[in-house]
Design a protein around this nucleic acid. Structure first.
Length: 592
RNA sequence: GGGGCCGUAGUUCAGUUGGUUAGAAUGCCUGACUGUCGAUCAGGAGGUCGCGAGUUCGAGUCUCGUCGGCCCCGCCA
C-alpha cells in the first residue's frame, strides 16, 4: 500500500477545495468516456466522484480503464469544485470531485453477484450466501450502526443508574424455560452435556443473592425452536436484575431507558408513563397479550345479544361455554363476497369455523345473520358495536381462546390491508397482571413466565384452592404489537419457591437435582429482587423499520436454522465424535 | 409435524391451451467516445428451466416425489 488514506469519501465538501488528499475504497460505478473516466468511489462514509484525466496523469488514466465495480483502489489527487453544469444534487458530495494524480489498485474483484445498492433486487437467499457483500450496502451498515448505538446508549444509561455489566457462562446446565436446549457434549466428562443458556435467568438471580444489587448484561441467548421473522436460534437480550425493588422500580427504570434510546437514536420523544394494561383487559379488547395499540378495531362481546337469536351455531357455541365477539371495520361495507370469503379463510388456521358479518351499506343492512335474528336484536347488536352506515361488522363464535386469536388476527389483517396502522408512531404498553400458571396441552399446570416468578402477595391463599386464579408479579412490554421484553419480581423465599415447584409437578428430588443450587441460595438470605429482559433484535428491528430481525443481525440463519454463507451446521468427522464419546443413530446419519 | 407462496441467464423477471431454435431488462465481455452520474453508441458471450421419476409423439408448462428460500400454525421469552 503505497498510498495511505487520509480522508473519507463521504466527508468531503466544498471546504476541502484545493486540498491534496488520499482516498481508499471500492469502485461503485464507472463511467468511461474514453478520454475522461469517472469513478464513484465509496467507503463506509459515502461516495465521491473521482476523475481520471490523461492530461493530469496519463499513467493512472491508462490503469483506470481496467477498473471494474467492486475493485479496491486508493487514489491521490486534488479536491476541486465541479463546473456548475455538472454538479450532482442527488449526491451528498455532488458539488465537488477529486482529480486523480495517483492510482493504486489494491485488489481486483470478480463481477458481483448483485449490485451493492439500497434498492436491493437480489433475493434474501442470494443476499445471505454473500452476506459480506449484502452488508456492504448502506442500509445494512446503517442498521448495524443503529444496533450499536442502541447498545451503547443502554450501557451508558444503565451505568449512570448504578448498574454493572457482568458476564455469565454459556456452557451451563439446562434451565427450565420451556424451550428446547442447544446441547454441547463434554469431552472430559463422557456422556454428559452442557446446555447453552436460554437466558441467564438463574445466574442473575444468584448475582442478587451475591449482593451486586444492580446487574445488567447484553447477552446472547439460545433456543432450539423453529424460526420466524422475529425469532432466531440465537438472539440478544438486554438482561437486567435488581434487588430490593418492586414492579414500579422496573417501570421507572425501563421507561426512561427507552425514552433515552429513542431520543438518542431516532430523535423521537416518547411520552411517559407508558400505559399499563391488565392481561384480562388486553385479551378482552384485543384478543392478544401483545396488542398493537396504534389503531382501533377493538373487540366487543355480543354473547348475550347473540343468545336471543335463532342461529343454532351461536346457541351451541354459547351452550358449550364459548362466546361471540366482533369488531367493526369503519367504511368496510363495500367489501365483496370474495373479499369476505378471503377474510374468513384467513382466520381458519386459528380454529375459527366461520366468520359472520353485517354490512351496513348506505342502502340497507346486508347479512347472512338477518334470517336468524329479529330485526330489533340485529339493530341492538349494531348499536352495541357502534356500527354506522358504511361499516362492516365481523363476528366469530367459538371457544374463548379461538375467538380471541382469530379476531386478533383478523384485526391485524384488516389494519394492514386498509392502512389503518399509522407509520412512524411508537406505541409502548405494559401488560400486567398475568396469571401465574397456564395449562399445557396435557392439561397440567405450567409456569406462564417461568417457575421463579413471584405470585402476588394477596393471591397467595388462592395457590392452594384455585391456582389458575393466582396472578403473577410479571410484566411484558409491547411495542407496536411486538413483544419486546418481559420480566418479573422473583420468588426470594425458599419455602414459596419449593411450593411453586411442587404445584408445577416438579417433586423435591427433581427440584434439588435440577436447581438445588438456586433453592440453596434462596435459603442464605436472598434479597427481594426482580428484573426484565428486552429483546434487542426486535427493538432494533422496529427502530430500523425493518420487517425481520434478520435485517439487524449481521449473520443470521434461515428458517431451517442454516447459515447459507458458512453452511453451518455441518457433519462432524468420526475422530471428533469419538473424542466426544458420541455415536450417531443410524437414522440420523447426515446426507452422504 | 402441518398450511400457503416461490425456484427459468450472474441478478430481477416474462414464458399463452403441452408444440419447432426458451425471451426481456440489467449485469458481464470487446470496441468507440473529454463532463458523465441509470453515461451513450455498436457488437458479443451467457441456460442442468432446483433435482428425480411419471404421463405424452412431444414437458419450462401436467402429475407424483424430493431439495432449497420466505410467510404462517404448532413450538417458542
Amino acid at each position: 500500500m503505497k498510498l495511505k488514506r487520509d480522508h473519507f469519501c463521504g466527508n468531503l465538501n466544498k471546504k476541502n477545495e484545493g486540498e491534496t488528499i488520499i482516498l481508499a475504497g471500492w469502485v461503485k460505478k464507472r463511467r468511461d468516456h474514453g478520454g475522461l473516466i469517472f469513478i464513484d468511489l465509496g467507503d463506509k462514509s459515502g461516495v465521491v466522484q473521482v476523475v481520471f484525466n490523461p492530461k493530469v496523469d496519463e499513467e493512472s488514466h491508462l490503469q483506470a480503464r481496467s477498473l471494474r465495480e467492486g475493485w479496491v483502489i486508493a487514489v491521490g489527487g486534488k479536491v476541486r469544485i465541479r463546473p456548475i453544469e455538472s454538479v450532482n444534487l442527488e449526491l451528498e458530495t455532488g458539488e465537488i470531485e477529486v482529480i486523480v494524480e495517483n492510482l493504486e489498485i489494491l485488489n481486483i474483484s470478480e463481477s458481483l453477484p448483485f449490485p451493492i445498492q439500497d434498492e436491493i433486487e437480489a433475493s434474501e437467499e442470494t443476499r445471505l450466501k454473500y452476506r459480506y457483500l449484502d452488508l456492504r450496502r448502506s442500509v445494512m451498515q446503517r442498521n448495524l450502526r443503529l444496533r450499536y448505538e442502541v447498545t451503547k446508549q443502554v450501557r451508558s444509561f444503565l451505568d449512570k443508574k448504578g448498574f454493572m455489566e457482568i458476564e455469565t457462562p454459556f456452557l451451563t446446565r439446562s434451565t427450565p424455560e420451556g424451550a428446547r436446549d442447544y446441547l454441547v457434549p463434554s469431552r472430559v466428562n463422557p456422556g454428559e452435556f452442557y446446555a447453552l443458556p436460554q437466558s441467564p435467568q438463574l445466574f442473575k438471580q444468584l448475582l442478587m443473592v451475591a449482593g451486586f444489587d444492580r446487574y445488567f448484561q447484553i447477552v446472547r441467548c439460545f433456543r432450539d425452536e423453529d424460526l420466524r421473522a422475529d425469532r432466531q436460534p440465537e438472539h440478544t437480550q438486554i438482561d437486567i436484575e435488581a434487588s430490593f425493588i418492586e414492579e414500579n422500580d422496573i417501570y421507572n427504570l425501563v421507561e426512561p431507558m427507552l425514552v433515552h434510546v429513542f431520543k438518542k437514536t431516532l430523535e423521537i420523544s416518547l411520552k411517559t408513563p407508558f400505559p399499563r394494561l391488565g392481561y384480562e383487559e388486553a385479551m378482552d379488547r384485543f384478543g392478544i397479550d401483545k396488542p398493537d395499540t396504534r389503531f382501533g378495531l377493538e373487540l366487543k362481546n355480543i354473547s348475550s345479544l347473540a343468545s336471543q337469536s335463532k342461529f343454532h351455531v351461536f346457541h351451541r357455541c354459547l351452550a358449550q361455554g364459548g362466546e361471540v365477539k366482533g369488531l367493526r371495520l369503519p367504511g368496510g361495507s363495500h367489501l365483496s363476497r370474495k373479499e369476505l370469503e378471503d377474510l374468513s379463510q384467513r382466520i381458519e388456521p386459528y380454529g375459527a369455523k366461520g366468520l359472520s358479518w353485517i354490512l351496513l351499506t348506505p342502502e340497507k343492512i346486508k347479512s347472512p345473520l338477518s334470517k336468524f335474528f329479529p330485526k330489533a336484536i340485529l339493530l341492538r347488536i349494531i348499536e352495541h358495536m357502534d356500527g354506522e352506515k358504511g361499516d362492516a361488522l365481523f363476528f366469530v363464535a367459538d371457544r374463548k381462546e379461538v375467538v380471541a386469536t382469530s379476531l386478533a388476527q383478523l384485526r391485524l389483517d384488516l389494519g394492514k390491508r386498509f392502512n389503518l396502522i399509522p407509520k412512524d408512531v411508537y406505541q409502548l404498553v405494559w401488560i400486567v397482571d398475568f396469571p401465574l400458571f397456564e395449562q399445557d396441552k396435557e392439561g397440567r399446570l405450567a409456569a406462564r413466565h417461568h417457575p421463579f416468578t413471584s405470585p402476588k402477595e394477596e393471591d397467595l391463599p388462592l395457590l392452594e384452592i384455585d391456582p389458575e386464579k393466582v396472578r403473577a408479579r410479571s410484566y411484558d412490554i409491547v411495542l407496536n404489537g411486538e413483544e419486546i421484553g418481559g420480566g418479573s419480581i422473583r420468588i426470594h423465599r425458599r419455602k414459596i419457591q419449593e411450593r411453586i415447584l411442587e404445584i408445577l409437578g416438579i417433586d423435591s428430588l427433581q427440584a434439588r437435582e435440577r436447581f438445588g443450587f438456586l433453592l440453596e441460595a434462596l435459603s442464605f438470605g436472598a434479597p427481594p429482587h426482580g428484573g426484565i429482559a428486552l429483546g434487542l433484535d426486535r427493538l432494533v428491528m422496529i427502530l430500523a423499520r425493518a420487517e425481520s430481525i434478520r435485517e439487524v443481525i449481521p449473520f443470521p440463519k434461515t428458517q431451517k436454522a442454516v447459515s447459507l454463507m458458512t453452511q453451518a451446521p455441518s457433519p462432524a468427522d468420526d475422530e471428533q465424535l469419538k473424542e466426544l464419546h458420541i455415536k450417531l443413530r443410524e437414522e440420523s446419519f447426515p446426507p452422504q
